[in-house]
Design a protein around this nucleic acid. Structure first.
Length: 267
DNA sequence: CTTGCATGTGCAT
DNA sequence: TGCACCTGCAAGT
């Protein structure tokens, strides 16, 4: 579920539901202690939520909660209902509730920790103020494979395994090419495409890399709905025919993750 | 019922 | 490079 687009839409949802309101903050599961933020009634002033890359910050008047969903974490913002499953953190105003399940992290952080976490993030394609030039220049000098560079949160904040695979397919790039083998212009194009794809992901609340900015060769073919709430060219399509050329999509383990690509379209 | 796997990260070896 | 961790879901027994 959670690449950067999810974190950004969750921050939007949280702001829609709670920005500027006094809310109850507690842990039904008991594994998180929000008491430094709250009064005797478990209440706190929720100022705003902020997404940077895959990190989510909840700003309260009395402090900051830092959430990272990790691989399996989930956050639901929805009408208040009885607890279903194991809820690490609940924020509610009596009507809406945010329920956090299975996060990698949910912790209180200081202003200094917040600053250093932000500073460690690369350029986030979903932040309008992002300036990618430094990051792109670094990537364009690197010997590391582009598949590695795109997953590096210190460079491209919020990009995950799906967007990596899809953006490389859309640009016909072999994932193992060293970063320095791409031209500066190609890096700019990759960045621009990530901005388009990820913004579409926030808006549609799903990953769809086939419909936005169609490659001409794909027009007229039925996009495939994948099992993860999106439409994709290569992600998790190992062994299936490439939507463009029909070649069997390849998968390999790279840096501990599954990497999908079309051996014909990407070389 | 059990097992395996996942869109992520950080630590130990 | 491997593995532990957080949880839910699908597939297998």
């Amino acid at each position: 579920m959670p690449e950067g687009h999810v974190i950004h839409w969750l921050a939007n949802d949280l702001n829609q539901a709670f920005a500027g309101q006094t809310v109850q903050v507690f842990s039904p599961q008991g594994r998180f202690d929000p008491s430094p933020l709250t009064n005797a009634e478990q209440a706190a002033l929720f100022e705003q939520a902020e997404a940077v890359g895959k990190h989510l910050f909840l700003h309260f008047d009395a402090g900051i909660i830092h959430i990272h969903l990790g691989l399996i974490g989930k956050l639901f913002v929805r009408p208040l209902q009885s607890v279903t499953g194991i809820v690490r953190l609940r924020i509610t105003n009596g009507q809406q509730a945010a329920d956090l399940h299975g996060p990698q992290w949910c912790k209180l952080i200081s202003a200094a920790q917040y600053e250093s976490t932000i500073a460690a993030q690369g350029a986030d394609p979903l932040l309008p103020q992002a300036d990618p030039q430094l990051v792109l220049a670094k990537a364009a000098k690197s010997q590391r494979p582009i598949a590695s560079l795109l997953m590096d949160q210190k460079l491209f904040a919020g990009v995950g395994n799906i967007y990596r695979a899809e953006v490389l397919f859309r640009h016909g790039l072999n994932p193992m090419l060293p970063g320095k083998q791409l031209s500066a212009a190609t890096w700019q194009e990759l960045w621009a495409d990530l901005v388009v794809l990820m913004a579409a992901g926030v808006k549609q609340r799903r990953i769809d890399t086939v419909r936005p900015e169609h490659l001409p060769e794909v027009m007229g073919r039925a996009p495939r709905e994948d099992a993860h709430g999106g439409e994709v060219y290569v992600y998790r399509r190992a062994g299936e025919p490439c939507l463009v050329c029909g070649t069997s999509i390849a998968v390999t383990k790279f840096e501990g993750r599954n990497l999908f690509w079309c051996p014909t379209c990407q070389h």
